[in-house]
Design a protein around this nucleic acid. Sequence first.
DNA 1: GGACTGACTCGGT
DNA 2: AACCGAGCCAGTC
Length: 113
Amino acid sequence: VSSLAERVAAVVATIPAGRVLSYGDVAELAECRSARAVGTVMARNPTGAALPWWRVVDRDGVLADHLQAEARRRYRDEGTPLHEDDRHLVRVDMDRARWSPGPGAGTDPGRAQ
DNA sequence: GGACTGACTCGGT
DNA sequence: AACCGAGCCAGTC
């Protein structure tokens, strides 16, 4: 049915507030073997849809520099678990915030895994 | 059609 | 720990 961009958009749209997925996770869910291709889609966002881009981070829970200021605001609003020891870098606590779809998903960020 | 690019990841130095 | 090289693949030129 669709281009990679649409599949990616569909996946990203399902990520609950306060949770995140890595590019690789999204790639897997969107049936694409390249996390990079996902990054390209997020960067250009060809669908024009208003996606919660800040809920897609790299495997370390970090976003590109030019997005950090905005992302930090969003994370604070959503209560996304962050590593607070980092002062100059916005880094999501992947152990707590990483989301996986399916049964049992959608638990509160406060809960481990 | 071919070459280059990038909001990635992983394994090796 | 920082750096590097190789896969990755959809777009763009």
